[in-house]
Design a protein around this nucleic acid. Structure first.
Length: 152
DNA sequence: GCCAACGTTGGC
DNA sequence: GCCAACGTTGGC
């Protein structure tokens, strides 16, 4: 099966590419949106991820990560007291799933949203068309185009 | 900090 | 099953 490409958003001041670099890998917990969850369930080990910072100016792709563990139930949904606790989720049929991702690279040059929007080859990116989805599929051509911009 | 766009909830 | 009300995300 061919490798797939994705984009995952993180609030820059909550968990940045620098945090991922320091930790090496992380559980992508706390996603509570069905479309985003469904996308994570489609991820396969080795898929590559554009790491995107929202809530910075400008928001931007700042790095690359890799899927290193395929989807499994998000433990925070069963952890009463955790901010992501979901009392409606049944342990025998978990509602929320996540993947583990590993740090690959921090981009020397971030690719800002205005630049992405200005690139006609990227006008169909989910990021441009539905700005709120936090885990999105990315076409290989789009992935390559973003990295080409990062590398000048 | 504001608010538009979007997703979810719940009353009917 | 519709849709108004509400909450959240994220660009600006």
């Amino acid at each position: 099966m061919a490798k797939n490409y994705w984009l995952m958003k993180s609030e820059a001041d909550v968990y940045s590419i620098d945090d991922l670099e320091r930790d090496g890998r992380t559980m992508w917990d706390g996603v509570r949106n069905y479309q985003a969850r469904n996308n994570m369930r489609k991820m396969r080990e080795g898929d590559l991820v554009l790491y995107y910072h929202s809530r910075q100016t400008p928001s931007a792709v700042t790095g690359i990560a890799k899927v290193v563990r395929e989807s499994y139930p998000d433990p925070t949904q069963f952890d009463r007291g955790n901010k992501y606790f979901d009392e409606k989720s049944d342990p025998d049929d978990p509602r929320w799933w996540l993947v583990d991702v590993e740090f690959v690279e921090k981009l020397d040059r971030q690719v800002g949203l205005p630049d992405i929007k200005a690139n006609p080859d990227l006008s169909e990116m989910v990021l441009v068309r539905n700005s709120r989805l936090s885990v999105q599929p990315v076409e290989k051509a789009e992935y390559d185009a973003v990295l080409a911009m990062a590398r000048g």
